[in-house]
């Protein structure tokens, strides 16, 4: 019994310690963000990697989800003869929730994992040490460009995801469920409020920040050898996904609680 309590206590303390270390890492990232030098080339590469190269996966995810959402709302709505709300609910569902969350999770899978694996490999092969000996701060050279790029480019990705998701619903709605094309679009546009769109983009920025920060944190703190790289990658993706979902709840509460 005492052993069990001790184990729970140790796990709790360990959890708090990890939260503390991540908070310190975040503070250090922000401090290095606002002090010189800034590595513009690295930032450019990160924008391309995180933003442009993520477009296909974001587009496909949103397209399929938007389509499926339309089908679900139609069949669910049919139970109380509310089939007509498909355009409105697809728009709300995509823009407020599914767009940011799915894009965030896809970025956690695609970007967080690659950042963590890359930086952990650099750690294991002494490239981080080499940076230090060449008078280059690893936080400034590796972390700041990636975190900044992800934070800035994610709202755009989420925006693209929202639009393609709505488009997926539109295709299914008009081709499969017999909605009139013009009125589907009209309903969507009329129904969405500015607050829906702002919340979507803000969520994107926060999720991008989380995804890149976790990749960098787990990469920088990786253990030795190939197993260190594997553990860092796994830890980073899990932490990013969980934190994105938690942040989503908090942000939804902040934007839409009445």
């Amino acid at each position: 019994m005492i052993r069990l309590l001790a184990m729970i206590g140790a796990a709790t303390l360990g959890g708090f310690a990890a939260v503390g270390r991540i908070a310190l890492f975040m503070a250090s990232t922000l401090r290095h963000l606002v002090t010189q030098p800034f590595y513009g080339r690295e930032f450019g590469k990160a924008l391309f990697q995180i933003g442009f190269l993520s477009l296909p996966v974001v587009g496909l995810t949103a397209l399929f989800t938007g389509g499926a959402l339309a089908l679900q709302i139609y069949s669910g709505g049919a139970r109380f003869s509310a089939e007509a709300v498909v355009p409105q609910i697809v728009a709300i569902g995509m823009v407020r929730e599914l767009g940011p969350v799915l894009v965030g999770l896809m970025i956690a899978a695609r970007v967080t994992s690659s950042i963590a694996a890359e930086i952990a490999t650099m750690k294991v092969t002494e490239q981080i040490d080499a940076l230090v000996t060449l008078s280059t701060h690893p936080m400034k050279y590796l972390t700041v460009p990636r975190v900044l790029a992800a934070t800035l480019v994610m709202p755009a990705l989420v925006g693209v995801g929202d639009i393609i998701g709505i488009f997926g619903g539109y295709i299914v709605g008009t081709e499969r469920l017999g909605f009139n094309a013009a009125s589907y679009l009209q309903n969507t546009v009329d129904f969405l409020e500015q607050r829906d769109i702002v919340s979507s983009l803000v969520k994107g920025a926060v999720f991008g920040f989380i995804a890149a920060l976790m990749g960098c944190y787990y990469g920088m703190t990786a253990g030795r050898g190939a197993s260190g790289v594997g553990a860092a990658t796994k830890g980073a993706v899990v932490a990013a996904a969980v934190l994105i979902l938690a942040a989503n709840l908090i942000l939804t509460e902040a934007f839409f609680s009445i």
């Binding site: 092969t125 490239q127 040490d129 000996t133 008078s135």
Partner: peptide, 20 residues
Amino acid sequence: HAKLLHRFGMLFQGAALFDS
């Protein structure tokens, strides 16, 4: 160390080249 690093050069045992 930071002030001195520009006067140092280091060859690592495993080369430690930046592979990107």
